[in-house]
Design a protein around this nucleic acid. Structure first.
Lengths: 182, 182
DNA sequence: GATATGATTCGATATTTGTCAAATCGGATT
DNA sequence: AATCCGATTTGACAAATATCGAATCATATC
């Protein structure tokens, strides 16, 4: 449940009356496709489609029993608060409209490039935050690509890369780097 | 958040990436339409549409400030667990596949009509549950219509109607009846 | 291994949803 | 009261989704 698309799809799975009914039925006991189709007066194909969406969202799991595929409610996600899901992994970064932040960015970035690395920790974090935003989540980067991306901002990519790791915004594992959700 | 459609619409409001982003933006601070449109690179019209869905779902509230309409995050619903919302007001009625229940229904219903009113409370509840399912939620019925519906099952509509009220499954107000969610 | 049976996938269609430009609205400013 | 300005609504179109029948699949059963 990391990126926005996945979260939206999770809620999309819950966004149809039939699918909510299906969850209710599977809450009572595991159900198979035809049984649900019968109760809801829908075709098997349609129910199979709904079940697939619910299973992909992690709300149901299925298990075969003889001829039947039984779908069982999964509780983990249902027990979570809506906001936990929506804002999970959303960066706790500063408001983009913070005036101090805006001034620091204006002072240190010239034509998109970092004119110098701020000495003050607070200011350095602001420019580092800006830089880390060039990295996507859910993707691994080789060191060469990390360097290349940072080079777009400043020549001393080694220092900046080390700082990003130090702040925990980039993670290194087996020689590959990935952006961390904070 | 009573009926299925409303619940589905609530989750539908959360089922688009742009709308999740909008919630994130409005979490930081109240935002107005153009501001969001600018950040998300969408037209004002589109953002207005998204905002309308989120507000209808109860996730945002808006307030005018000078020229601007500021949208503010509403926390109540976000703090609730998913299952609370999905299963809120879902009838605690017996599993339709319960064998005892099935037997009672078989014994007392002949060709869709109640052959006699069960004397035992437990059995009576089962047949009354069956009858109340002929009523829709979120609709008011005049007494004449209530009687007519119950008449389809048994001649003694007065007794059955009184029992349904007694169980709290039908509610009477100003001479009109409505089905209660239990 | 042939067959029966429930599940899934495919293909087609109807409905719903997302998007934007243009027109309209409604409160603020002058 | 005339004008300004952001928000909303309207109308049109594109994209995504729901639905079903038919074809295909997977696996129990014989």
């Amino acid at each position: 449940m990391s990126n926005l698309e996945t979260k939206a799809d999770f809620f999309k799975a819950l966004s149809h009356p039939s699918r909510l009914l299906i969850l209710g039925l599977c809450k009572q006991k595991p159900r198979h496709t035809e049984e649900i189709a019968e109760i809801l007066k829908l075709s098997k194909a349609t129910v199979s489609h709904h079940l697939s969406l619910l299973a992909t969202a992690g709300l149901l799991e299925s298990e075969r029993d003889q001829y039947y595929q039984n779908y069982k409610l999964q509780h983990e996600l249902l027990e979570r608060k809506i906001e936990e899901i929506i804002f999970e992994g959303v960066k706790g970064f500063a408001d983009a409209t913070d005036p101090f932040r805006a001034k620091v960015l204006r002072d240190f970035f010239k034509h998109g490039r970092l004119s110098q690395i701020p000495a003050q920790r607070k200011k350095r974090e602001i420019v580092l935050e800006k830089i880390v935003q060039s990295f996507e989540y859910d993707r691994a980067y080789p060191e060469s690509e990390v360097n290349q991306i940072i080079l777009e901002f400043h020549d001393d990519f080694a220092t900046l890369r080390r700082e990003l790791i130090g702040l925990g915004w980039l993670h290194r594992e087996n020689g590959m780097y990935s952006r961390v959700k904070v």
